[in-house]
Design a protein around this nucleic acid. Sequence first.
DNA 1: GCAAGGTC
Length: 852
Amino acid sequence: MRNLYPESQLTVSNDTRRGRYIVELIVTEKNNAARRIAEILSEGGASTSQVAGVNVYEWGGRRCIGLSGHVVGVDFPPEYSDWRDVEPAELVHADVVKQPTQEDIVNALQRLAREADDVVIATDYDREGELIGKEAFELVREVNEEVPVQRVRFSSITDNEVRSAFADPDDIDFDLAAAGEARQVVDLMWGAALTRFLSLSAGQMGEDFISVGRVQSPTLKLIVDKEREIQAFEPDDYWELFADLGKDDSTFEAQYFYENPEDGTEAERVWDEDDAEAAFDVLRQAGEAVVDSVSRRTRTDDPPAPFNTTQFIRAAGSLGYSAGRAMSIAEDLYTAGYITYPRTDNTVYPDDLDERELLEAFQNTVFGDDAESLLEQDRLSPTEGDEETTDHPPIHPTADFPDRNQLSEDEWEVYELVVRRFFATVAEPAEWAHLRVVADADGESLKANGKRLVEEGYHAVYPYYDSSENYVPAVEEGDALAIADARLDAKQTQPPRRYGQSRLIETMESMGIGTKSTRHNTIEKLYDRGYIEGDPPRPTTLAEAVVAAAEEYADLVVSEEMTSELEADMTAIAEGEKNLEDVTAESREMLDRVFDELTASREELGEHLRTSLKADKTLGPCPECGDTLLVRQSRTGSYFVGCDGYPECRFTLPLPSSGEPLVLDDVCDDHDLHEVKMLAGRNTFVHGCPLCAAEEADESEDRVIGPCPDCGEEHGGELAIKQLQSGSRLVGCNRYPDCEYSLPLPRRGDIEVTETYCDDHDLPELVVYDGEDDDDPWELGCPICNYEEYQERQRQKGLEALDGVGPKTAEKLEDAGVEDVGDLADADPEGVAEQVSGVSADKVRDWQAQAD
DNA sequence: GCAAGGTC
């Protein structure tokens, strides 16, 4: 293979005729990688410019551009885009075409490619990276038929890896890329055709379509299956017995056990009440228990493996973060340079990582003591997990330590988790001393298991695992211990636990469905589609119907086998044993057969889906006509409760104006109606029974607080605290609807009208007792002042409406004097970029464009 | 407007 990088080529003359001496274009998967590779290869000498608004790093004879993952996507030709004009089954044999999805980046890439004498593809070292590389290659070929294109592969962006990869470039693996393309085509075909079929047959178009896919549907089936198990579960009664045994002045707890007559194993649960009572009588009357045996052993407790995405999500989950939130924080920390790439399957640190050096970077930080103690160990041998992949290193902190004040509390907490996980992986194992005592009480057996942490090991630096001890005193064989107390606990077997988000992601990983980058999105998609609700997620009636329909007619698409078969096919393509056409043709045949059956059952299926959709919207009996109350949507898009007997019955109830209504399982005792929850992201709240809310509003009296600032002088209008049927409260003019003056009030809590008046508005100050903390009520103050302050905060938060601006960035922007969108418009992008860490001038221009 | 996969 030709070496592209003889040293002489690295120094190119400074001729100003642009493009003339450009020898090489490097293409990476993302901007971050482009920047870091440029830094390494240019030894810090790269300059940044924009081409078509895309960052390009340039030095010597090289230019480096980062894509944004796939910049082209597969789709059907436009003549298939109208759902009603095209039979879904036709999609099975429709062409699949590729189109740019990120025009700016495609333009920039092609502009640079025209001027390139050499192209090097440096996308991620995994299958999807190979495909993204091939897509870049095709875009390059469109504008430059001659230029040689090569491929470099490295699994972490470090000096060594990058330099040696570029010193020995390879070719694109077109077979591997074709494997990825097969996946694209198969997923599109199955997903789009079945999604359209189910949606059309149920009459659900527009936003509320019914979606099906190779990854989302098996995931949904996991949740539905678990719910089926829970519903089918019948609890069994059992009993457990405990006794407090005295040793010296203290007691410890021991549990009754017996030998299972069937297999000789040790059992604690007693399934017969009489047996349990009999054993209980013996324990109560025995008075003492004689120690039969005392056994001691030590157990080594190895530190955990490095974080891959799934294990990171799990650990963050135990701190209370949803999978999506954990990933979003990790992405921010990565972009800011504090942790490595958060999307990885790898659980083995690369050879390039110098753990000692990385620990030293923490010596003068708040983690200094822990870092020091680890550095004092004789050797640092990091743990390894089972997965060693080429994609990226496991998630670990970088040597770039953040300023704690620049991070939000959540970001800091997650950052600390990543730091401590890294510490744990290089720490010593912990050691536990176990003590098992078995005693006899008149023929019945009692046991106590004690454990003590004798070597703290990694627990000293990683406090996230339970390391609580259980004290059992050192007794000796033959000791007689007083039975201080005996207890008989009646218990019931519990239904299986629902999947939490992180267990769901772990299960998806073990089934091989989805990827490190998409699993958390799949779960969010299920929420968005109205398939699941709550946390841990529970399936809606619609979800149960969709899974049941898929099981009956297209079993493959809800099974993990679809993925495993596709994986096998992809491997075959990558190894040259099959080709893309073989695999997609097979898939088309299968899908044809599925559609034969589906088409025959279209009516029945549609009816079932419609019924299920209705069930998810059903509240209960209409108080006027006894028919069914449903959540409905008006032509303007707002939600309300209406009667299924419309137009004969015109009974309605309002719903809150913010959020999407979700019908809960809980039923109101007074009206037999299901309660309603309003989903609005972080502002989600339970509205309760809409009829109760309406009745409460009707019963509550308006409380007049002062003159209306709009019409008080002219017409004598007065402001009053009002409760509306929709559950919202406001300060409004009593001349409504002639005067529409109003101020919002919080939905919850008792509002007290104080004797203190606002000087500016002549209105009393208000205090809200929300019931949770009566000692520290919310001093809302004058409602006009309060609303003005609220609006001011919203104006500032306007910054957060911009893409990529979170609360943290908004804060930083405010510090830099950019307090609202208006300031942003006037700001100098370069100046802002200089003042605000982690924000490029380019990003600022992007925000300015958005704000327009 | 459909999927899943990248990335922001």
